[in-house]
Amino acid sequence: MVNASEKIQVKELSVTYDSVPALRSVSFSVLEHEILGIIGPANSGKTTFLRTLNRLSDLNPKLKSSGEVLIDEKDIYKKWNVFQLRKKVGMVFALPSPLPISIFENLAYGPRRDGVRNKTRLSETVERSLKAAFLWDEVKDRLNESAMKLSGGQQQRLCIARTLALEPEVILFDEPCSGLDPISTAMIEDAMRELKKRYTLILVTNNTKQAARVSDRVAFFLMGELVEIDQAQKIFTVPKDKRTEGYVSGRYG
């Protein structure tokens, strides 16, 4: 793991919301083809961090950031075109967020905006993405039905497939299972283990057990600070910091 290349480098990243600090000088790296779990109580800056990575934070004028984030060694603010960045860094939101259009059109949304017009190519992309998110068999006969008709778990896998359609390299998961039942959760976790072979995954979760189940490494955030980052096993068994220990053992959260 030491030799694995660093996909994302975060250097002294600070973010303020309406001049209140949300992230305080956070520095660490995310390695290629790992699942990095980010845990921490509410308002610890996890989601803010995630939204900074694909610059969705730009949408909120009250958010101001300083420091550097490099993806593929290029600064996301200075060297990346924001639209290219967001294609490269896909995102799955906390609540299933299909657009109220057909399953096919949900999948095709990204590629179409990217300028893909060719129907055959779109169909291929849709099929490939749905297969990769383990949804193809369930929906292949009703691609033209509204995505709103799917169950919550299916919708969330649809959202994963939708980001895959853009052939990203990094996928951000923002508490992707918070509204789902255990079976759907297990399916999504399986999908994530499979996806990490080809992508780099960052999983923000409130559920420490989930972090333990799927992550290779885990970062613990508290009140905007990165308290500790290490192999998942170490975080959950021999954390270095007292605060980490308190959180993972359930003393606060």
Binding site: N54, L56, L59, S97, L99, Y109, G110, R113
Partner: peptide, 11 residues
């Protein structure tokens, strides 16, 4: 969320 989804897909 519709807007966020769209932006997150690079639109």
């Amino acid at each position: 969320t519709f807007r966020e989804v769209s932006y997150s897909l690079g639109a």
